[in-house]
């Protein structure tokens, strides 16, 4: 009955309909491709394409995105519509709204022993104060919002924050959704495990081990891709994801997971809070932290890049001073391996 009717209708419209469906599918496919998470932020090399690289569209995107940390606008101190909007906030609301972390030791955290005041402090927070001072003339004109790892991009897109300064890695997938400043810190994914653990590094000793990562972090996407590509043993268990990288340390201490993967800079912060765990092996990726902003906030991106240039040049109270104050204890006195390369501004619009 059905089949017959179908056959009859096919006689009339079959050819046209089938063509239309095929066309629609093709269009849909092409449109969806750029959304597929492209892997390997900053790793460079020819592996970025993946198995589907024959598609022209994606190949072009990958080509454009071999060095995501360079995809930013040249610095400029000029005001624009975004900065004007921030400056036009009235009275108590005249503040820069910034998404930060309050759980990253020495990056953005609240010292519980700071004497009852609730000030956040750390390397990221220093940078935020610097940006606020430059734009609004007052380093304290900031409203901090604590944001979980996987909420950083939605928070920017929804306009809940003006920018996110939260140990956020610049990568190709995120460039689809937000704009980044020039890099302000260099790090790489690193493995953290108890000192007594048989795990020696990012290698086969991870077989059958449970690894904890933060939801929506580069650590998770890197591990997932590596496992697919065979660079990580297939039996590694990645199911444990938590809202914040620090929650991984909790799971590790409770014995619920065997190892943690996160940025080396943060892994060092975790190790600093617990002398029985240590970094295992070297960083196995190279990544850069950047300030994330709304995609169309060109003036703000340029302004932040300008501020970053000054921040790094400032020897008294700039990048180096903040490094020494917050990070030398966990990352070592030599800041050279944490310094990002001289910025390049390849994005034109």
């Amino acid at each position: 009955m059905h089949a017959r009717r179908l056959r009859v209708s096919l006689k009339g419209w079959g050819g046209v309909g089938a063509m239309a469906v095929v066309c629609a599918l093709a269009v849909l496919f092409v449109l969806l491709l750029p959304l597929a998470p492209s892997h390997g932020g900053g790793k460079g090399g020819p592996d970025t394409g993946g198995p589907g690289a024959t598609w022209g569209e994606q190949a072009r995107a990958a080509e454009e995105c071999t060095a995501p940390e360079k995809q930013t606008l040249s610095p400029s101190p000029a005001d624009g519509p975004t900065i004007d909007e921030i400056k036009s906030r009235e009275g108590e609301k005249r503040k820069l709204i910034v998404g930060v972390d309050q759980n990253s030791y020495r990056w953005g955290y609240r010292d519980p022993n700071s004497g009852g005041d609730a000030e956040l402090e750390g390397f990221d927070i220093d940078l935020v104060h610097r940006i606020a001072e430059d734009i609004l003339g007052d380093p304290d004109a900031v409203q901090f919002k604590a944001i979980p790892t996987d909420q950083r991009i939605p928070a920017i897109q929804d306009g809940r924050v003006d920018m996110v300064v939260r140990t956020m890695t610049i990568n190709c997938a995120r460039l689809q959704d937000v704009a980044f400043s020039a890099p302000y810190f260099r790090t790489g994914q690193q493995l953290l495990a108890p000192k007594s653990s048989p795990i020696t590094g990012y290698n086969d000793t991870l077989a059958d081990k449970e690894i904890c990562t933060a939801t929506g972090s580069t650590a998770f996407s890197t591990l997932e891709q590596d496992r697919k590509d065979g660079r990580l043993v297939a039996s590694a268990d990645l199911r444990t994801t938590v809202p914040n990288q620090l929650d991984c340390l909790v799971r590790l201490q409770l014995g619920e997971v065997d190892a943690v993967v996160t940025d080396g800079a943060l892994a060092a912060s975790q190790a600093a809070q617990d002398p029985t765990v240590q970094l295992k092996g070297d960083a196995f990726t190279t990544e850069y932290y950047g300030v994330a902003m709304k995609k169309d906030a060109d003036d703000l991106v340029r302004r932040v890049n300008q501020i970053l240039v000054e921040f790094r040049q400032d020897t008294e109270d700039g990048w180096q001073a903040s490094y020494e104050q917050w990070l030398s204890a966990t990352l070592g006195d030599d800041s050279a391996k944490s310094e990002p390369p001289a910025p390049q501004y390849l994005r034109k619009s």
Partner: peptide, 20 residues
């Protein structure tokens, strides 16, 4: 109790324990 101990040492992992 772990959260309290870490809090006293000034480590933010205390907050993570509290959340857990």
């Amino acid at each position: 109790e772990r959260a309290r101990t870490y809090n006293r040492q000034g480590f933010p992992v205390g907050g993570a324990y509290l959340r857990y």
